[in-house]
């Protein structure tokens, strides 16, 4: 892990009408780390993430992603990132191969690159014999692993994962996190939001958002120490209990 700052946010704010969804947050993400972005529903995680992905313009403050400015160079940011949304984001009525081809295609990858990498990926996921089956027929856990592979297929510098493991069983979640580790080991920075506190333990550093502000940011062990908590669960409860907002 280097100490290269790949994401920087400085006083980043988003206001909807009179509502401060994100209230001047500042943080850095280092290149190659797994950065956990935690917070209760409605804390402003998704809004903050959307600003970093170029899906939403900040109201004030500044931020850079992969060295590009979110105001001026959203197109360049989009080329450098991968994204996996809360909702499962593959096409159910397309085959596995077609999904991979499509997503690689929209990132403008060459046919040779796509062909070569598809073969490797299918082998890795043990989906070789399933390549021409519709995604609809896969179990949810497989779909999610595939969606993650597709999100990093074009070899982005950063991948944003928005609650990627919602609704899957613990075994699959574990496998999913192994894939995240592999991606991080290959140099991809992982920016992940989650509800599962055991997953927070897997992150290199986590930030916890409460009511649009970042309340804490450190490694899981340092957070537990400073708040005298036995687990991340406890850390989260101690911080999030202060929240005024609730719900989505």
């Amino acid at each position: 892990m280097t100490n290269n700052r790949i994401i920087t946010a400085n006083q980043l704010t988003k206001i909807f009408g009179g509502f401060k969804a994100v209230d001047s947050i500042s943080f850095d993400v280092h290149e190659g780390e797994i950065f956990g972005f935690l917070g209760a529903n409605g804390a402003g995680k998704t809004t903050a993430m959307r600003m970093l992905c170029g899906l939403s313009m900040p109201s004030s403050g500044s931020a850079t992603v992969a060295g590009f400015d979110v105001y001026k160079e959203p197109e360049k940011i989009k080329r450098s990132i991968g994204y996996m949304s809360q909702k499962f984001s593959l096409y159910e009525d397309l085959t596995i191969k077609e999904n991979i081809r499509f997503y690689a295609g929209i990132y403008g990858k060459s046919d040779a690159f796509i062909k070569d990498k598809t073969a490797k990926l299918l082998q890795q996921l043990h989906l070789g014999s399933e390549a021409n089956k519709l995604v609809r027929s896969l179990p949810l856990g497989w779909k999610q692993k595939l969606a993650f592979s597709v999100a990093i297929f074009h070899e982005p510098r950063i991948v944003f994962l928005d609650e990627p493991t919602g609704g899957v069983d613990p075994v699959t979640r574990r496998e999913f996190w192994n894939m995240i580790y592999e991606a991080a080991a290959s140099g991809i920075t992982v920016f992940v939001t989650t509800h599962y506190m055991d997953e927070a333990e897997y992150c290199n550093r986590v930030s916890i958002m409460v009511d649009g502000k970042i309340e804490a940011l450190d490694t899981p062990s340092a957070l537990k120490r400073s708040l005298h908590a036995a687990s991340m669960d406890e850390v989260f409860l101690k911080l999030a209990r202060k929240a005024v907002r609730s719900g989505d």
Binding site: M84, L90, Y103, I106
Partner: peptide, 13 residues
């Protein structure tokens, strides 16, 4: 509805 639009909008297309 399926969320694929969001993924598309995050892409450089």
């Amino acid at each position: 509805e399926t969320g694929t639009m969001e993924v598309m909008l995050v892409s450089p297309v």
